[in-house]
């Protein structure tokens, strides 16, 4: 993997969802700032893990990078081209090079389509492997790649287990031969013994096909297993990003520190003595984030500059960046 070859770039990316006005002659009370100023680079051939808790904006960011939601500010570049204002025609060609694997493969597969039809649909849409026989052969090949028996092609999603359905979802994502795949909580709804199978499959496919992943997950341990680099989101912002080992083992942002410390480790003697940093209170509303640093209302290490200065990502050591005044006041 050569760093420096950027496949996907977000520049000051914003996705704000306006709140509905409470009455006919009243103005909207504001917007949910799901993604609120994110700068991010994803290098060709790497896996970037994106972690954070419910409502931090991680799924919205993944969707915005694929233009599945329209950014309200900033820009997204794919392979050097600004795709933010790209018209739908041109976007379609780009769509083939990107794909998404969803959390719940049951909800993302059409129950009236056989799995063979679901996997073959992107081929039809993008005009790949034209002709019935060639398409059929390609679907069989895709099913084999993800470890499904091609003889099951005429079955319907409800006849499959959760793990198998996720394999169907992955086969479908691979159909257009994408460069970049956003995996949005791909193992969250699977049983423990099946999660490992899907994680291994995703890793193997990446190595074999040279894919680039954004792996969105709330499960930091799973992210550490697959991601070269990890980005941590809190309330619409990336608060820390860097080498997966560094972010996991030596977190430099107090939020990452709390997050890492809260993940239970399945080893009793280590888990019992581990210092859990228990954050007080709840995540503030993304409609009205705190002034200055957004984490300051819950931060155990809050100090004078935090309410007034909005920290920006700054390098800490050689392997990561953190948006925290503890490493020098910014913003």
């Amino acid at each position: 993997m050569t760093q420096g070859d950027v496949l996907v770039r977000a520049k000051s990316l914003e996705v704000h969802f306006p709140l509905p006005a409470p009455g006919p002659f009243r103005s909207s009370p504001g917007a949910v700032r799901a993604v609120d100023g994110v700068d991010l680079e994803i290098f060709r051939g790497e896996t970037l893990g994106l972690v954070g808790e419910s409502g931090c904006g991680k799924s919205t960011l993944g969707n915005a990078l694929l233009r599945l939601v329209e950014p309200t500010g900033g820009a997204v570049e794919f392979d050097g081209t600004d795709v933010t204002g790209m018209p739908a025609r041109e976007l379609r060609a780009l769509r083939r090079r990107t794909a998404m694997v969803f959390q719940d493969p049951f909800a993302s597969l059409d129950p009236r389509f056989t799995v063979g039809e679901s996997i073959g649909e992107p081929l039809v849409i993008h005009g790949l492997h034209r002709g019935r026989e060639r398409r059929r052969a390609r679907v069989s090949e895709l099913m084999e790649i993800v470890g499904l028996n091609p003889d099951l092609r005429n079955r319907y999603p409800h006849e499959f287990s959760g793990g198998q359905r996720q394999r169907v979802g992955i086969a479908r994502a691979l159909a257009g031969e994408p460069d970049f795949i956003v995996c949005d909580e791909p193992i969250a709804s699977l049983d423990v013994s099946v999660q490992a199978q899907v994680v291994n499959l995703l890793v193997r496919l990446q190595r074999e096909l040279g894919l680039t992943y954004l792996f969105v997950s709330h499960d930091l341990a799973a992210v550490r297993q697959v991601a070269d680099r990890v980005a941590v989101m809190y309330l619409g912002r990336v608060v820390e990003i860097g080498d997966g080992v560094a972010v996991g083992d030596e977190p430099q942002h107090p939020y990452t520190e709390a997050l890492v410390s809260a993940v239970p480790v399945p080893v009793p003697e280590r888990e019992r003595v581990r210092e859990r940093i228990v954050l007080q209170g709840d995540i503030p509303s993304p409609t009205n984030p705190p002034s200055g640093c957004r984490f300051r209302t819950r931060c155990p290490r809050v100090f004078e500059p935090c309410p007034d200065h909005d920290p920006v990502l700054q390098p800490v050591g050689s392997r990561q960046e953190a948006a925290c005044h503890l490493h020098g006041v910014t913003g």
């Binding site: 896996t47 423990v192 013994s193 999660q195 490992a196 199978q197 994680v199 291994n200 890793v203 193997r204 930091l220 341990a221 799973a222 550490r224 297993q225 697959v226 991601a227 070269d228 080498d243 997966g244 080992v245 996991g248 083992d249 890492v260 993940v263 480790v265 399945p266 280590r270």
Partner: peptide
């Protein structure tokens, strides 16, 4: 089959998870 958070190896250095 569980991925370990505090395994010091990077994702590339790790073995695939054991599966059933």
């Amino acid at each position: 089959s569980l991925p370990l958070l505090d395994d010091p190896r990077s994702a590339r250095e790790r073995d695939p998870l054991t599966t059933m």
